[in-house]
Amino acid sequence: MSQISYLKSKKEMKTYLLPSIKLTLILIVLTAGIYPLAIAGMGKFTPGKGDGETITYKGRVVGYANIGQKFTKDEYFWGRPSAVDYNAAGSGGSNKGPSNPDYLKQVEGRIDDFLKHNPGVTRSQIPAELVTASGSGLDPDLSPAGAKVQVARVAKVRGLSVDAVNKLVDEHTEQPLLGLFGPAKVNVLKLNVALDRVKK
C-alpha cells in the first residue's frame, strides 16, 4: 500500500473508531441490560416466577418439574441412563459414537441390569431410551412404553395391583402438543411422586 493511501485509511479508521465505541456502549445497555431485565420482569408472572417450576411433596421441594433426577430403587420408575449422573449443576451427553465398542458393551450391561431387576421382561420389550443416555443427562421423561415395561416391577415391590399402576401411568402420560405434534411422554418425577401419594 502506498504511503498516502495508508495514511488515508488510518484517518478513516479514526473516523470509524469513535462511533464504534459509542455505538457499542449504547447497544450493550439496550441488548444486554434493558432487554433481559424486561424479560425477567415478565418472568415474574409465570408459574415458576422465573426461577423454574418446582415439585413439592410433603411440604418440601423434591425437585424441578423439568429436570430429571436419579431413580435407582426398584419401588420407583427409573428414568434414562445419564452421562452426568443427573448432577444438574452441569449437563451433557455421553458423546459416544454408534460404533464405539466400549459404548456397546456399556449398553449390553444396562440391558442385563434391567432384565435382572425386571424378571419376565424380554429384550424386545425394552425401548431403546431405557438403555441409552440422554443428550442433556437430565432428561425428565420416558416414552409411555418405557414406563409400561416397568409397571410389573413397581407394582410387585409396592404391593399394588398392576392395573392400578398402569392406570397411574396412563394418567401421567402427556399427549403430543395439541394432540397433533411430537411424541407422547411421561414425566418420571411426577409419576413417582404420584406413586408415593398412593401408598399413604
Binding site: P98, I126, A128, S134, S143
Partner: peptide, 24 residues
C-alpha cells in the same frame, strides 16, 4: 443403531443415544 438392534432391543422411535424423549 443397527448395533443396538442386534442386541434385541426395540427402537420404536429410532436411535435414542444423546437424544431427549420430549423431542424424539
Amino acid at each position: 443403531n443397527p448395533a443396538i438392534a442386534h442386541m434385541g432391543i426395540s427402537q420404536p422411535t429410532g436411535a435414542m443415544e444423546g437424544k431427549e424423549v420430549r423431542f424424539g
